[in-house]
């Protein structure tokens, strides 16, 4: 059974989902991620779902679960790259992805994560205009 690769970047874990997931793959990702958070002591998890054209309540629950589980282990979760159509559908469905933060793209997601965990930034202080 193939798995979704989890990349480690400093204090963060980075997951990019490029294809529509089989349920099994999604549940595997959930457990793998939690394991990885434990093993690496990561402070933040960033999940890029720009490749997902469909997020149903199952997938939404997985994302929520990852958020809550990481939270207990003291890591913040940011989901980035939600497609407009997916966002609207989720709202209609009644899913608001509580427990996870969202950002437009990976870059903004990283900024958000750094802000959230107030990490001893490895970068020079941010420009005033953080939207750039």
């Amino acid at each position: 059974m193939d798995r979704i690769p989890i990349l480690r970047m400093g204090d963060f874990l980075l997951v990019t989902i490029q294809i529509d997931l089989y349920d099994k793959l999604a549940t595997n990702l959930e457990s793998d991620l939690v394991q990885m958070v434990n093993k690496t002591g990561a402070r933040g998890v960033l999940i890029d779902i720009s490749g997902l054209s469909i997020v149903d309540s199952f997938m939404g629950r997985i994302l929520g679960n990852i958020g809550s589980m990481s939270k207990i282990m003291d890591a913040e979760t940011v989901v980035v790259g939600i497609q407009p159509a997916v966002a609207i559908t989720l709202i209609e469905l009644g899913l608001e992805l509580k427990g996870v933060h969202t950002a437009l793209n990976v870059e903004k997601g990283m900024e958000l994560l750094k802000e959230k965990i107030g990490s001893p930034s490895d970068e020079s202080p941010q420009d005033e205009d953080s939207s750039e």
């Binding site: 054209s53 469909i54 997020v55 149903d56 309540s57 407009p84 159509a85 609207i88 559908t89 469905l93």
Partner: peptide, 17 residues
């Protein structure tokens, strides 16, 4: 359209589950 497609497929996905 893309949005209605997404809604339809999501709905279908829910029911299949």
């Amino acid at each position: 359209g893309l949005l209605n497609q997404t809604k339809l497929i999501t709905a279908a996905s829910e029911l299949v589950r």
